[in-house]
């Protein structure tokens, strides 16, 4: 994970600086300025992240049931969480989402970016902006809107499918809800990822593949053999964003639940489970444990992913 690799670049930087300056008192004293620059952020970071986290972690070590008082139970809540069928099935759900949703977003974003990189028409510029526009829609508003769009009566699906002589699917049924959620997320985020990938593609010096063009390579070959390998570290970062977001999947299913309470149970994803435990069932302690357990899972998965792609991302 980046966490552990971040400092690795500093020894070399340090060495080169020390080579120039020698670790004299002036140099040492100057480094304290770093703290001054970091201090305002550190204050906020401590107040609104670290302390709440410590507080939440402490809560997760206690139990407080409705009918009896608060007890210290140590890691019992975590043992319970990782054997809790509801939490585990929620993890299964987000794992399934990760396997389907991330590739879906990546394919759309990558294809769009590759096509756009090859074009310089007004139509392509216009398309680029239009594909990106959903990113400007707040997630809650987007999910509310899709809730309307999925409604058989309220939304346009029936009309659209009638055009081609088909009956509209029931987007909000148990069988289709998964795909409906994948679609919302893809719609909301693919444009953003596309822009990042596109920006990376624009960063490639065309000189690199001019030779290939002269040799008669097709676009597809250039894309596959030259462009994609060259932007692999961007792709890895985009996937990491998507992975963290997917494992913490919350807002879209929570909002959509407003119109599909049967198909999306309260504990559909681990984050929704934590939310309902805390706010509907007043089990704040166990909810904290579930949140941290999810945090651990996110961390492990991100770490595994970065480890597997260490060659592509350039991380050691």
């Amino acid at each position: 994970m980046a966490t552990t690799t971040a400092p690795t670049s500093s020894p070399s930087a340090e060495a080169s600086q020390q080579g120039k300056h020698r670790p004299d008192r002036n140099y040492r004293r100057r480094q304290r300025w770093g703290w001054l620059f970091v201090a305002p952020f550190a204050l906020i970071f401590l107040s609104f992240l670290i302390l709440p986290l410590l507080f939440a972690f402490r809560m997760s070590l206690f139990t407080n049931t409705l009918a009896s008082g608060t007890d210290f139970v140590g890691v019992d809540n975590y043992v319970k969480a990782f054997t809790d069928p509801i939490f585990l099935s929620g993890l299964g759900t987000v794992a399934k989402f990760a396997l389907i949703m991330i590739p879906a977003q990546m394919i759309v974003a990558l294809l769009a970016a590759l096509v756009l990189d090859n074009l310089a028409t007004w139509a392509s510029k216009f398309s680029r902006l239009m594909i990106f526009v959903p990113y400007a829609v707040p997630v809650v508003i987007g999910a509310l809107m899709w809730g309307f769009l999925y409604s058989p009566r309220f939304g346009p699906a029936a009309d659209l499918f009638n055009l081609v002589g088909l009956a509209a699917p029931e987007f909000l049924s148990q069988d289709n809800i998964f795909g409906s959620l994948v679609n919302i997320v893809t719609w909301q985020w693919a444009g953003y990822y596309m822009i990042i990938i596109y920006a990376a593609l624009r960063g490639i010096d065309p000189g690199i593949y001019e030779a290939a063009v002269l040799d008669g390579a097709t676009d597809r070959q250039i894309a596959w053999r030259i462009k994609i390998p060259m932007i692999s570290s961007s792709l890895v970062m985009v996937v990491i964003f998507a992975l963290i977001g997917t494992l913490q999947f919350f807002t879209e299913p929570q909002v959509l639940r407003g119109v599909a309470q049967g198909a999306i149970p309260v504990s559909y994803t681990p984050n929704m489970y934590a939310f309902s435990l805390a706010f509907s069932y007043s089990q704040f302690n166990y909810a904290s444990a579930i949140s941290f357990a999810l945090g651990i899972v996110v961390f492990v998965f991100s770490f595994i992913f970065l480890f597997l792609t260490r060659k592509q991302s350039g991380l050691k």
């Binding site: 204050l43 906020i44 107040s47 609104f48 302390l51 709440p52 410590l54 507080f55 402490r58």
Partner: peptide, 17 residues
């Protein structure tokens, strides 16, 4: 104890900001 620490932290942040 965490509450007090946090309170102090936030109060400081609030005053500064």
């Amino acid at each position: 104890k965490a509450t007090y620490l946090a309170t102090a932290g936030i109060a400081a942040a609030a005053v500064v900001l």
